[in-house]
Amino acid sequence: MTGHKRLGMWLFVMSDVLTFATLLIVYMALRLGNPDWPRPFTLSPAILFATGMTIVLLASSLTMVWAVAAMEAGDRRGAVRWLVATMAGGLGFIGLHLTEWRHLLETVSPGTIFGSVFFGITGLHMAHVAAGVIYLGVLAVGVGRGKFAAEDVETGGLYWHFVDVVWMFVFPLIYLMAVKP
């Protein structure tokens, strides 16, 4: 029975890649259709702040790797610890992101085309992160109680890394390409 879940998750990731590709294509199409695309981000603090978010998310990928490694080594307590650390990273990312949103909402309305794209795409990404935190939470509780095998944690890791990779596209395309000249 091994391997099913991993294959299943790969398939999910493939379809979700297409979902995000769709969103980014929507973004590019709209951007091409609107030559006067706004560039509201200053290097400091906006981009610095977003870089901070990126680092938090990347760090959580690292802890995820360790969680998988711990699980493979049979160290359930270690795995739970790293899973919780990963969740903390995810929650930190969401917290920072919402702070950023609050500030941005003062000047950028979601009714404008830039606002639509920015809040729409980062919002859907954030929803993925949030879903991931819940998913990892379920894993952590289960692993702590002695359920789940190494493959399950690995499968969770696959999802988490995928969400990270998506951000690696969102960050340059949506943030860096909208820096104030």
């Binding site: 979902t19 769709t22 929507v26 979601p110 009714g111 404008t112 085309i113 639509s116 729409g120």
Partner: peptide, 16 residues
Amino acid sequence: PGGVLLLLDRVAGTSF
């Protein structure tokens, strides 16, 4: 995502 964006246009006031 097509459906979600349409829903956002309707309920969140976006303009995709």
